[in-house]
Write a protein that binds this DNA or RNA. Structure first.
Lengths: 149, 149
DNA sequence: TATTGTTATACTCTATAACTATA
DNA sequence: TATAGTTATAGAGTATAACAATA
């Protein structure tokens, strides 16, 4: 059997998983970053500033990102009630529908990927991955990267 | 303990791994796609056409990608000896140096990530991931996605 | 005729710097 | 003065369509 190092294996797996997400998003004509945006907004209503932090982007990049998403009817800017300089960004129902469908397709992809493993091994994998993520989050603070969707 | 589903866990892990690669590449002013390009060229000297297939890009996108890489001294176009319409693309020594350093830093990142697991668990993870990748490659043909570097 | 690669064009995504309007 | 957000600008990355050169 071809031996794969831990590093190579995780790297290849990450390409596989990201590729699946990108493909499923593309089916609905959204990019990976737009998908991440929608995912982040699923349970938040941040300011542009906060969004920039959440996505690790410059504020001017967020302006463009939200402009395009708003033009497509996926998000709306709501004036902040407490600061007249500031806007809050929130999802539209259209976007909620969209991410629900993208998520479902993506989850099916990943489920199919791991379906080749017998159930006990699958459980073992899930456990090991969870331990990695928990240890990483503990070491680096709550990591934003999360929230696929 | 927070329970994480298999799908969510793999998705989050993939963001973590890709983020590390992207960060390390950025330290040397190369993008993720340029890094993938260099990785693919490490053991190949493909035509533009073949490169497009390997990277899942349109041929016109590859023209631009190679233009920019060539301008930076990372690759060269060599006339094909057998077809005067065609060029072969190959790495320069500069690029080999670059990917060696990016790879080393990235591998250290991933090694640090998995270092929290005891050795036997780490071995178990590697084995499970390898089995996933092998099964996937068998089902989908040799998958190009591979070749992190 | 078909294939290889480039060019023209258009759009997304990103950052830096300068700006406006609040605070 | 400092902060929130936008605009102007520049560049990477991507695709489609039309094209030139070669097969």
């Amino acid at each position: 059997m071809p031996s794969i190092s831990t590093v190579d294996g995780l790297a290849q797996l990450s390409f596989l998983v990201q590729g699946a997400l990108e493909r499923r998003a593309a089916e609905h004509d959204v990019s990976l970053i737009q998908t991440r945006l929608l995912g982040v907004l699923r349970d938040r209503r941040p300011t542009m500033q906060e969004l920039a932090k959440l996505l690790s982007l410059d504020k001017s990049s967020v302006t463009g990102l939200i402009d395009r998403a708003e033009r497509r009817g996926l998000v709306v800017r709501v004036p902040s009630p407490t600061d007249r300089r500031s806007s809050l960004v929130e999802l539209t129902d259209l976007a909620r529908d969209l991410i629900t469908r993208v998520s479902a397709a993506f989850e099916a992809d990943v489920a199919a990927l791991v379906a080749v493993l017998p159930a006990p091994d699958r459980a073992g994998l899930t456990d090991l991955v969870a331990r990695l993520l928990i240890a990483h989050a503990a070491a680096h603070g709550v990591d934003l990267l999360a929230s696929t969707e």
